[in-house]
């Protein structure tokens, strides 16, 4: 078991190397002087050509590309991500501000989508072909067929402008920075992000649960004299939620992508907004790091997903699918 977990996390490393390599060479291909991205621009202003050349030599920019790559990787591990071309502040600092913001709304959206998707999907499966099943399906379809920005604007009009329950956007007010204070800023964007996922999660849950409900071992459980509710909770759910977990994990990367639009609508200072502003300002250093971070997140999450599935299903744990 522990061996499986270790192996699963070690398997991230080669994938990570490929991704970092792509991003590194991407950075190399960018127009402009790399010096500007690597050194605090204030420090370099007014330097002579000789000084710049000396700096270049000092930073190893004249070394072979592979050597540079390894050195760059080392810097990354130390948390040195270079400098923004527009704001001149270290990329690490910028990301440290933005990353938690996106993580918060995406996390909340995931919890939201997982909770309601699973709940409604299980209801559909247990009461298949009834009004409850069809009703849930319609709600889910509304979520997946309306574009996120449209739902977002409707919600802003209703809850922020009309009812004035929630703010129209932003992340926090001055003086109130606790999680609870931030929560009211998170509700609407998270709901918009999660709502679009519910239909998918629900559909997958419904089909997967129905599939398990028709398995022979469910009849075995029934033949033991077990209650229907217990059969569902103990025998159906645990087997049926595996594909749903895979779906949720796979969707998380799309969520980060989808959050660009939602963050823009809600003027929410997250990674999505950062991505948009940095690309439109040709701030490649920042854009690339945002990409890298997103890729790392996806890799880590898929490993976490596999671990959860291994905990649920012994056949995975013992290396037999």
């Amino acid at each position: 078991m522990r061996q499986y977990f270790i192996a699963r996390f070690l398997s991230i490393i080669p994938k990570l190397l490929v991704i970092t390599m792509l991003i590194f060479f991407g950075l190399k291909l960018l127009p402009g002087d790399p010096l500007a991205r690597l050194v605090n621009p204030e420090e370099m202003s007014g330097a002579s050509l000789e000084q710049m050349e000396a700096k270049r030599e000092e930073l190893g920019l004249n070394d072979p590309v592979i050597v540079q790559y390894v050195r760059w990787l080392g810097n990354m591990l130390k948390g040195d991500f270079g400098y923004s071309l527009t704001s001149h502040s270290p990329v690490r600092k910028i990301i440290a501000q933005r990353f938690p913001a996106t993580l918060e709304i995406c996390g909340l959206a995931m919890i939201f989508a997982a909770f309601f998707g699973l709940l409604m999907g299980c209801q559909c499966a247990r009461h298949r072909n009834t009004a409850l099943d069809y009703g849930n399906t319609v709600i889910g379809l509304i979520g997946s067929s309306f574009p996120g920005f449209f739902v977002a604007m409707c919600l802003i009009m209703l809850f922020a402008l009309k009812l004035k329950w929630l703010p129209t956007g932003g992340r926090m007010t001055v003086g109130e920075t606790g999680l609870l204070a931030r929560l009211k800023y998170m509700v609407l964007p998270s709901f918009c992000l999660g709502f679009s996922m519910i239909a998918n999660v629900m559909r997958m849950t419904r089909d997967s649960m129905l599939d398990v409900m028709n398995r022979d071992y469910i009849t075995t459980a029934r033949a033991k004299g077990e209650k229907e509710g217990v059969i569902f909770a103990k025998h159906v759910f645990r087997n049926g939620c595996t594909p749903v977990i895979l779906l949720l994990i796979g969707r998380f990367s799309l969520l980060v992508g989808g959050s660009t639009i939602i963050e823009t609508v809600f003027n929410y200072p997250g990674m999505g907004m950062l991505m948009i502003t940095s690309i439109s300002a040709s701030d490649y250093q920042v854009a690339m790091m945002v990409l890298l971070l997103a890729a790392v997140m996806v890799l880590l999450l898929s490993a976490v997903g596999d671990v959860i599935i291994a905990l649920l299903d012994p056949r995975v744990r013992f290396g037999k699918a």
Binding site: Y217, A223, G225, E226, P314, R315
Partner: peptide
């Protein structure tokens, strides 16, 4: 399960894998 018990045709699929 207590007074009348039953076993089925396909033992491969009749036990819960988890």
């Amino acid at each position: 399960g207590q007074k009348i018990a039953m076993i089925f045709q396909n033992p491969m699929a009749s036990l819960n894998p988890v």
